[in-house]
Design a protein around this nucleic acid. Sequence first.
RNA 1: AGGACCAUAGCUCAGUUGGUUAGAGCGCCACGUUGACAUCGUGGAGGUCGGCGGUUCAAAUCCGCCUGGUCCUACCA
Length: 948
Amino acid sequence: MDKTYQPEQIENRWYQRWEEDGHFAPSGEGEPYSIMIPPPNVTGSLHMGHAFQDTIMDTLTRWRRMQGRNTLWQVGTDHAGIATQMLVERKVAAEEGKSRHDLGREAFTDKIWEWKHESGGHITRQLRRMGASVDWSRERFTMDDGFYKAVQEVFVQLFDKGLIYRGKRLVNWDPTLHTAISDLEVENRDQQGQFWHFRYPLADGVTTEAGLDYLVVATTRPETLLGDSAVAVNPEDPRYASLVGKFVDLPLVGRRIPIVADEHADMEKGSGCVKITPAHDFNDYEVGKRCELPLINVFSRDATILERAEAFDLQGRPLSDIDTSLPAAYAGLSRFEARERIVADMEAAGLLERTETVNNTLPFGDRSGDVIEPYLTDQWFVAVENLAKPAIAAVENGDIEFVPKNYENMYFAWMRDLQDWCISRQLWWGHRIPAWYDADGNVYVARNEAEARDKHGLSDDVSLTQDEDVLDTWFSSGLWTFGTLGWPEKTEALATFHPTSVLVTGFDIIFFWVARMIMLTLAFTGEVPFKQVYVHGLVRDSQGNKMSKSKGNVLDPIDLIDGIDLESLVEKRTGNMMQPQKAKAIAKATRQEFPEGIEPHGTDALRFTFLSQATTGRDIKFDMGRLDGYRNFCNKLWNASRYVLMNAEGQDCGSDGSEVELSLADRWIVSRLQQTEAQVTRAMEEYRFDHASQALYEFIWNEYCDWYLELSKPVLWDDDATPQAQRGTRRTLVRVLEAILRLAHPMMPYITEEIWQRVAPLAGTHRGEGDSLMVHAWPEADEARVDEAATRNIEWLKGVIVAIRNIRAELNIAPGKPLEALLTKGDATDRERLEANRPFLAKLAKLKRLDWLDDPAEAPLAATQLVGDMEVMVPMAGLIDKDAELARLEKEIDKQDKLIGGIEKKLGNESFVAKAPEAVVQKERDKLEDLSANRRLLVEQRDKIAAL
RNA sequence: AGGACCAUAGCUCAGUUGGUUAGAGCGCCACGUUGACAUCGUGGAGGUCGGCGGUUCAAAUCCGCCUGGUCCUACCA
């Protein structure tokens, strides 16, 4: 083995071997365990969030596989409608100077497929680098043939049950992308805006109570004035009671619109009058429904002003009895241009009462960045009410459990206030809606055109055209858990692996995806999609900021694994930016944060870092310091293994069953191993990967390396040690290491496999050529091998060694200088332990002599420390700094006094003694005794030195 | 406006049902290349557990209020 751990040399090799040997596929034996990967965008690349999530899923999967479960980690990618379409659109524009419309639908979607074939392997290659043990043989894509079939089936069945309908409704419209988007894809941003107060003249000579011949309405969106169909006042408002049923003349347009009474109008706000524009505002739409107002649309698909408005009734039928003419001056203007013109024209007409500046929030499309417009269009919807009920119940009754539990509230809050789901998108990339129209606009929903004809008795001479729209991406990914397993066929895989065991996902996607999966899966399989949902937080940068290209703080997990030089990193962060003016600042910050670029750390260290930071449900600030630390940890494990191999390879390790003698240290480390195994297993069961990784880290570093390896040296290197004892120690070294590797494998698959291949043959667990650690058994703790006596003994030994190290440090004695030490005031057990541990003490504490002093009174002047009741003394051969030592002792005495004072106060408190449990009181008494003994010793010492 | 979560060492974080001399890693200081490892070893400094009040014999931990931060939902005519 190389002297230092070099991850790049082992990682690729092992992944390929595992994959070739088919270790990722389900074993077909044991209780099923399954996880569905949240499908990443097929053309995307792996970001820190994926890497984090994949680490968790892989750790769970490898762990359960080792436990003997029939384990499936289902992999696949998502077609990601808008994102992919936009990406390819930009690419085609840049490379060919053409828009998608230049190409036409078919040629353009061909381009996307081409791009998918070209770049679709990128993210799956990166997934392999992370060590993900997914079953590649079952890889799926949300637009592959089987999935298409599942999507159609679900759509048709929902339609036939009356749960999908089509209608003209107000939806969130993206004027740039020309498609409807869901509420969830809208990002509300705070803005400063203007608030214009307009006068609307009353018609027919009517006046208000106050004698005015106009009403004042206020708006942040003057351009929608063109589509007003009423002015509302509150039905309780005495100021306007007489005006309800009367009319105003809509300025600039000249349309006569009614004054209606509706509780939407708030008497406290502004004048108490509100303009109502049902086709351009969600609240007004509701008012329109209650007051039976016409819907007057004044925008084109681009959100420019129409030449002539369109009027509809609430069922979406065109209305012909309304004057839809609009002033020619605004035709073709954008929303924002029209706003300025209308304000100017109102002012010129003397109808602008005043303007104020207000803070408001505006909806932006999270993909296009454009301001989203409520817009009246024909869309397909899923009626969610009846789907939501069982989905809520499934979480209430515990069929689905969120970890951590508080996310259940978030889920309930959303589910109880669910609006019908708009599932149609005016895009070209996606699952085309299986609906056909005849020349009269009648709609026929079926699995294909032939079925549509058949079902509705349409002859071949009726021409049918398919709906142009595609389905929301989340409609297909909502079928992920059962669609990937072959549904609607009744497959073996579906019977075995559904419901899945756990979904690992970020909280940001609970609404988009988790809730919809639950609804659709329950409706079509009668089963929940997963029994548990493990919700993790976002990976942020070290300052707690979201990682984003525009902030220039993105880390690429692959760069953390392989390393990257500074120039490449700067180039990566500043190249191809949306806002190039930020490049300079980003370059500077990057040079400052990573003056040397990023060193390679390897996949295992990255995985371990994620796991150690995976505390329940909160965001993680990614810490480079910890990544370095865990790379060092890998190196530590590597070198400890080298030590074991150097001492065990080619030696008798007792694997043939020959007689062995186990030292106290051997029994102690075996005992601690059992406890660690139990601890790690329990933490994994609770999804506390931070605890699992920490328990492992501490055991490997602080116990196995720091103590056990050191304690093995006197046995292995001492010529007087018996062969049985040496065999016992070699056997323990090898077997404990082998168990450590199994225990660590789910978290750090590569390094453990690499070392295991060398260690397992010595431990007798290697099954020959082609064997892999990943299919070996997870270590089970054996209570019977927990050895309290050995533990107490080693604790004593550690106590003495630490005491001597302390004395060395205090007296400034070089660590390597051999010392003489004395033990005194102990009991018979202490004496026995001294004899049993003499070689260990000599070696680890660097002692040339260690004696038992029967009569403490004969003690020479010495630096002293307590181990239990026993004193550990290092005689001071004169060379001490008297003043410094006195000062140190005084300080130490003070410290003890404070502690003693605190405890005495506690014990002096009658109610404490009376009310606290006896065990707690006794503990305080014991503490007091120990502290007092220590204090006496310190005082004695001080007096001796002072007397010199 | 409603809700959720968070605040512990310079930094990133643990701290189970109230009882610890409040812990880890990184960073810092001192010493040290002894035959696995300087990506290391040994020792050390560093915290009034955001603030105030309450419950209790006992509060980092439970309750209330306040401050600061993150996020979600809603509203903003």
